[in-house]
Design a binder for these strands. Structure first.
Length: 332
DNA sequence: GGCCCTCTTTAGGGCCTT
């Protein structure tokens, strides 16, 4: 199967977020809602630092360009090809010839310096890539259900800062009412299966990693759901999540905020979106819509909890190896 | 399923994810 990927040059501007009480902060964006047609977005992303970090002058305007398959599941041809799409094509071809995805793993030794910089309290924002991600699945069981959509957004911005694709789960989708992703949408020949997507995914994240830096993959309830789910999908295809990927779960941060007595009702993403006055960004429970929301929720959480990038790295990240896989006790 | 909380730890219930 050919996993046809295409570039969608999106134009999406978010509304201005209230409470810019600090300067030089991460997502100090200026967004004006302006949706230009279906699947057409653009937004501006300014400084790639987190609360408390001096990220320098990042007034440069980023134009986010997306890397995606057609998430409506229609069989359309890509309208533009460049080096990255060629790389993806190459990776896909390698997959078909039996690629071992461990070849794509980044050496853990490359990230040694970042721990030193944390210790030395140096600016590490230029070494850390923060990627928000979300998956849609056929259900809650990582053993019996499958991923049907995945979306990612590198907060550094720039070309190809987002990635999204449907995934053919090779099984019936029973929860279409949740996310509106149907069997017909994922059966399109342009929609990759997980077997084909894994090396593409690893290649994409590797392409976003800065030399000698670290990648933090952020998801809401990621430690209990998204990361174990991905880990199981990788295991099912005899792969492992790269050991140098770090993960961050925003639920514990939300719990901390809730306990502080600010009036947050619960820790759901939708509740956090309302709490921070973030407008809906497309259909709820579509991966990229939730990623866009979580990107702004993370901004609010780090601001309210006064979390710096070093403190996030040291106290709130985990590795996939921290998650116990009980798959040996289960049968698909 | 992992995490947190409590009327707990030799347990049970609720939250959060699709």
């Amino acid at each position: 199967m050919r996993a046809a990927m295409c570039f969608s040059f999106s134009h999406f501007q978010l509304p201005r977020i209230q409470n810019h009480t600090f300067s030089g902060s991460l997502w100090k964006r200026v967004h004006n809602s302006s949706i230009k047609g279906e699947n057409s977005y653009r937004f501006q992303l300014l400084s790639p630092s987190i609360y408390g970090l001096q990220g320098g002058q990042h007034s440069r305007r980023w134009s986010r360009k997306s890397l995606s398959t057609n998430t409506e599941g229609k069989n359309t041809l890509s309208r533009k090809t460049n080096n990255i799409s060629q790389k993806i094509s190459d990776v896909t071809n390698l997959t078909h010839s039996g690629l071992n995805t461990s070849r794509l793993e980044i050496s853990g030794s490359e990230s040694v310096h970042i721990e030193q910089k944390i210790t030395e309290n140096k600016d590490i924002s230029k070494l850390v890539t923060v990627i928000i991600f979300d998956i849609e699945t056929t259900g809650f069981s990582r053993y019996n259900d499958r991923v049907i959509e995945i979306a990612m957004q590198d907060l550094s911005g720039g070309e190809n800062s987002t990635f999204e694709t449907l995934v053919n789960p090779l099984k019936r989708i029973w929860n279409t009412s949740i996310h509106n992703i149907s069997d017909d949408m994922v059966k399109s020949p342009t929609v990759p299966r997980m077997k084909e997507l894994i090396p593409i995914l690893v290649q994409y994240i590797q392409s976003r990693q800065k030399p000698g830096g670290r990648v933090i993959l952020v998801a809401h309830n990621g430690k209990s759901f998204d990361v174990p789910f991905l880990k199981e999908e990788f295991r099912r295809h005899s792969c492992e999540l790269p050991s140098n990927w770090l993960f961050l779960d925003t639920v514990p941060l939300a719990r901390k905020l809730l306990k502080s007595g600010v009036g947050l009702e619960n820790m759901r993403l939708a509740t956090l979106r309302e709490y921070y006055g973030i407008p809906e960004m497309g259909a709820e429970h579509r991966a990229m819509a939730d990623v866009n929301v979580l990107a702004l929720v993370l901004q609010g959480l780090t601001r309210d909890l006064k979390l710096t990038l070093p403190s996030l790295l040291e106290n709130h990240t985990f590795k996939s190896s921290d998650i116990v896989n009980n798959s040996k006790k289960k049968k698909d």
